[in-house]
Amino acid sequence: MIGKVKVNQSFGAMCRYVLQEQAPGKGAEVLAAHGVRTDSAEHMAADFDAVRAMRPGLGKAVLHVALAFPVEEKEKLTNEVMGRIAQDYLKGLNIDPENTQWAVVRHQDKTHPHMHLVVNRVDLDGQTVSDQFIRSRSVDVCKGIEQAYGLIVADQVGRKQAREIGPTPAQVKATTPKEEQSADWSRARQEIGRALSYTAGQARSFDELREALRPRGIELELTRRKNGSPAGVVFAQDGHRVKGSQVGREYSAGNLETGFAKARELGQDPAQQWQQVGQDYALAKLAAEYAQAKQRQAQQQPSQQQSRGFEMGD
């Protein structure tokens, strides 16, 4: 089980993607949801944004996790099982499924089983759901779920795939120790760049980035000037050392620090008065929307309405 974690800004774009309304052939199936309507991307995004309004200063409120499994597990992973796994995953991240808006949608566009989990980083009490070290925490949660459900271990699959992929063309062509060293270093640089593309944009400090990279077998070494500002950053994997600027200009120490500062700024809580305004608006909007939905349900299914009440997520 592999969880690819991203933190984004737009619920509208994310809901359109997971529900695949413009590409019905991908077979999007809503497995479970809480606190949001699932009849359309527009309604789902509106419900997410209504609660998000309680934290108007939170720039990236969309937590998106793609949970993927080996193709060998396809028979075992029914929709019901995958829905339970999604909720166990939330609990593993210390996210309360009963006090947080979320939806999990299964896609059928690939041979291996996979689903997309969308979570509001503002819970129903108006508190921010932390994304600190979330990538490294996700790795631990996935390992726990693999054990609990008796699933194939992702690390084993990764090692198998690495053996199947084999050496790069440059490594095959290398005939001297110097050429081999150069080819190995280039491969390490590519892998470090791939890891940074998933992690650097979400970190708020070098410490957070270091923790996010460690599960991928990458170490971060930082040097500072006398005034405390970052002077240089080096990433190390399998004995190969790569400067951040060698991976890409955006990964130099200075540019990374600039990105961290912006992430910290977006994560700051707004003034109390704006919190209250947002909370009042969000709760009023949710109440009105769910009252309308309940009324429509009563009109369409009067007999069923007598036997059970309206449930969030219906």
Rank of each mutant, 00 (worst) to 15 (best):
Q279W: 15
K262C: 00
Y251S: 00
T258V: 02
V277R: 15
Y281G: 00
A282E: 03
A231Y: 10
V277K: 15
V247G: 01
Q297L: 15
V277G: 02
P270F: 02
R224M: 05
A271I: 06
L286Y: 00
E221N: 14
L256C: 05
Q276S: 09
V234M: 11
K243H: 05
T223C: 07
Q276I: 10
Y251P: 01
E257T: 05
Q279M: 14
Y290F: 11
L283H: 04
W274H: 15
L256R: 00
Q295I: 06
P230E: 11
P230W: 08
Q272M: 08
Q279T: 15
F235T: 01
A271W: 05
V277N: 12
R264L: 12
K294N: 09
G259E: 05
P270H: 08
F260W: 09
F235P: 01
K285V: 11
W274E: 15
G254L: 04
L222Y: 09
Q279C: 09
E265Q: 11
E265N: 12
F235Q: 00
D280R: 12
A282F: 03
F235N: 00
R224C: 07
A288P: 02
K262V: 11
Q246M: 13
E289Y: 05
A284R: 15
F235C: 03
S229F: 02
G259T: 04
Q276W: 10
A287P: 00
G228H: 07
G267L: 13
Q275N: 07
Q237M: 12
